[in-house]
Nucleic acid binder design. Structure first.
Ligand SMILES: [Mn+2]
Ligand SMILES: [Mn+2]
Ligand SMILES: [Mn+2]
Ligand SMILES: [Mn+2]
Lengths: 137, 137
DNA sequence: TCGCGATTGTAGCATTTGCTACAGTTGCGT
DNA sequence: ACGCAACTGTAGCAAATGCTACAATCGCGA
């Protein structure tokens, strides 16, 4: 039989991507912040994402339940090994998407914006092509 | 002063993209379906997106409130001019993203999946570069 | 015409992510 | 030592999107 792609499959994948997107952006942001300052606090993330501290607080609690971050009441936020690994993977992917956009001639500001959304929907296969075309880091 | 990109701007843009994503995918799907059959019904969309008919029903009602689709109780779904225009724009963008992925060597199944998610985060500037690199249709 | 299967609609629930308002905690400077 | 400002946490709300269960409607074949 001819290969009829199930029309629902891309949409199911996209929904799945969105379900993990918040976790990815948060651990990546925490890793970033911890490289430029000694502690990552709820307010740092609230500024970074331009959302209220309440939204950040609730999401951090959920990520802690999932084992991706560690924190205690009134204490800064840390990344356990599981969170560090995810952050490293996401940063790598994010960087490749960003550098790829630059490589094809997109300006830096636009590349930064588009990469932030696109990264979560780039499969391993596409990322491999992006990496080749992005050239040396 | 040096141009320090506001770190929150990419995230704000991504949230905005997600807010319009459902409308875009729905009108695009309705236009697609109306090209291969005479009527588009709630069940057609439920199959296409692999969600329950209830989810589709509610979203269609909201899109009708926004003037993007037209329907009446127990009747098929139509696209008014506003919906047709959005559908055409989205399909064009979707096609370019898909063809661009093929052009850089991604296989068809993967390109279909990645394009479905990526399309909503591709700016006009990036789309222009994709169009060039995708080659003749 | 009538009835049954398919379709559409409604009720009610869960989760995620956004918000404001308010309350509790911390720690720094005086 | 203490008081105030910043930070953190809680309460309660809204909107979007997912679900199941059930009810109503439609239309086609017998
Ligand atoms: Mn992102
Ligand atoms: Mn996204
Ligand atoms: Mn899409
Ligand atoms: Mn997306």
């Amino acid at each position: 039989m001819t290969e009829i792609a199930k029309t629902s499959e891309p949409h199911q994948r996209t929904r799945g991507d969105h379900a993990t997107e918040t976790a990815e952006d948060y651990v990546e942001a925490i890793a970033d912040i911890l490289e430029s300052q000694e502690a990552c606090r709820v307010t740092d993330l609230a500024k970074r994402f331009a959302v209220s501290h309440v939204t950040v607080h609730r999401i951090i609690r959920r990520l802690q339940d999932e084992g991706l971050v560690v924190t205690k009441p009134y204490q800064p936020i840390h990344l356990p090994p599981k969170g560090k690994r995810l952050a490293a993977r996401c940063r790598e992917r994010h960087t490749i998407v960003y550098r790829f956009l630059l490589a094809i001639g997109v300006d830096e500001a636009t590349a930064a914006i588009d990469a932030e959304g696109m990264e979560h929907h780039v499969s391993a296969a596409t990322l491999a092509r992006f990496r080749e075309l992005a050239g040396p880091g």
